[in-house]
Lab assay of single mutants.
Amino acid sequence: GSVVKEKKEKALIEVRPYVEYYNELKALVSKISSSVNDLEEAIVVLREEEKKASEPFKTDIRILLDFLES
């Protein structure tokens, strides 16, 4: 629970300088966080969101995924 939350919060802070739609990304992460149990599940849902998103938000999600998977 809290470790996953920390990882996601740290990821958002780390990617902030590189993303165009930070507030939207943060809102998406919050929405996903409330419906998943762990980081792996969150990553799966983020990948689905990435497929549906259009640029440049798609790239923002990709940047976040790269950080979460590192």
Rank of each mutant, 00 (worst) to 15 (best):
G1W: 00
G1F: 00
G1R: 03
S2R: 06
S2Q: 10
V3T: 13
V3D: 12
V3R: 06
V3A: 11
V4D: 12
K5F: 11
K5E: 13
E6H: 04
E6C: 15
E6D: 14
K7N: 06
E9W: 14
E9D: 10
E9M: 12
E9F: 14
E9C: 15
K10D: 06
K10V: 09
K10C: 14
A11Y: 04
A11Q: 03
A11L: 10
L12D: 02
L12T: 01
L12C: 06
L12Y: 02
L12Q: 01
I13M: 12
I13L: 10
I13V: 07
E14Q: 09
E14I: 09
E14K: 10
V15F: 02
V15K: 03
V15P: 01
V15Q: 01
R16S: 05
P17V: 06
P17L: 06
P17S: 05
Y18F: 13
V19S: 02
V19P: 07
V19W: 05
E20S: 15
E20A: 15
Y21T: 02
Y21D: 11
Y22V: 02
Y22I: 03
N23K: 08
E24M: 13
E24Q: 11
L25T: 00
L25Q: 00
L25R: 01
K26T: 09
A27F: 10
A27P: 00
L28D: 00
L28A: 01
L28C: 01
V29P: 00
V29W: 15
S30M: 15
S30K: 06
S30P: 01
S30A: 11
S30L: 15
K31I: 07
S33N: 05
S33F: 15
S33T: 12
S34V: 08
S34G: 08
S34W: 14
N37S: 10
D38L: 08
D38M: 06
L39N: 04
L39I: 09
E40N: 09
E41A: 08
A42I: 14
I43V: 07
V45S: 11
V45M: 14
R47A: 06
R47N: 05
E49R: 04
E49S: 04
E50H: 12
K51I: 10
K51Y: 11
K52Y: 09
A53D: 00
A53F: 06
A53N: 06
S54E: 06
E55W: 12
F57K: 01
K58T: 03
T59Q: 11
I61V: 04
R62S: 06
R62D: 01
I63W: 04
I63V: 06
I63N: 01
L64V: 03
L64G: 00
L64Y: 14
L65G: 04
L65Q: 00
D66H: 15
D66T: 14
D66V: 13
D66W: 15
F67C: 04
F67V: 12
E69M: 10
E69Q: 12
E69L: 11
E69S: 12
E69A: 11
S70K: 11
S70M: 11
